[in-house]
């Protein structure tokens, strides 16, 4: 997501944190966050092109083989030649493990940077819910699909990261992110309340299940993001109004699952 998407995801998550989790998060946040997790949920994007963090760039997405509308961890994430789990689901597993290890007790031999672990985890849980962050390798998750968003020339990935949300803010939420967040929170309690417990739980009571999040995203990418968005097409109300509910639900799911 862009700045707005990460802010919304983390703001929603903050509303669902337990007392223990809120206390731990506030202890881990950098001073610059002033106690607000949402204020630093884009940090991973800011450092992505910084020399010292260049290794983190591949952790924001999954490269799905072209036209495969499913996700397979070993096929899409595990780089067996380098024994690396170089994708967003691997990143979520890794930083969940780092925070759990630290919580389980001060293990001297491991000196993880838990503040970075929290910020990367919060960012990646958001990203894996953006369908085109699990998009096709061939079109770079929609980055190389040039389209028009109303009159503006852009690419399909940017439409999903940013343009749909910005158009929604202008059209429905008085350009006020808090109003959009409140609307999504109302949706969670009024319309999706039965789904929340399903969203929250993972098989075998595991802490996170990013493979499920990624499978949902590639399916949505094929059904909604890529559909009716061929290179050179102009996307307007027809596309915007039918895709906005998908975006808002993915932001809600990302927030509830992060919490």
């Amino acid at each position: 997501w862009g700045k707005e998407g990460h802010y919304v995801t983390c703001k929603i998550a903050q509303g669902y944190l337990s007392e223990d989790a809120l206390f731990a998060v506030k202890q881990l946040l950098p001073d610059s966050a002033e106690g607000d997790l949402a204020a630093v949920c884009s940090w991973a994007d800011e450092v992505r092109f910084n020399y010292h963090y260049r290794w983190s760039s591949a952790l924001h997405y999954v490269d799905t083989p072209d036209f495969k509308c499913n996700y397979e961890y070993c096929r899409d994430c595990h780089d067996s030649s380098k024994h690396k789990h170089r994708c967003v689901t691997g990143g979520i597993y890794n930083y969940t493990m780092q925070l759990k290890t630290a919580e389980a007790g001060p293990s001297s031999e491991l000196n993880y940077n838990l503040t970075e672990a929290l910020l990367f985890l919060s960012h990646f849980v958001g990203d894996v819910h953006q369908p085109l962050h699990v998009g096709f390798l061939g079109d770079l998750g929609g980055n190389s699909i040039t389209v028009r968003w109303y009159r503006r020339k852009t690419n399909l990935h940017h439409v999903w990261d940013t343009m749909i949300i910005q158009s929604a803010l202008k059209t429905f939420y008085d350009s006020n992110l808090s109003i959009m967040i409140q609307a999504i929170q109302r949706n969670i309690t009024d319309n999706w309340s039965n789904d929340v417990s399903i969203w929250e739980h993972c098989a075998h009571n595991s802490t996170a299940c990013p493979d499920r999040y990624a499978s949902e995203s590639i399916s949505l990418a094929c059904k909604f993001a890529y559909k009716n968005a061929t290179p050179g097409s102009t996307l307007e109300d027809g596309y915007f109004l039918s895709r906005l509910p998908i975006v808002e639900k993915r932001l809600a799911q990302g927030g509830v699952r992060l919490a």
Partner: peptide, 16 residues
Amino acid sequence: AILNHIFASKTRIAQA
């Protein structure tokens, strides 16, 4: 759910 799960474990150990 992820952060609540991670940071709840400490309380559980304390209670155990």
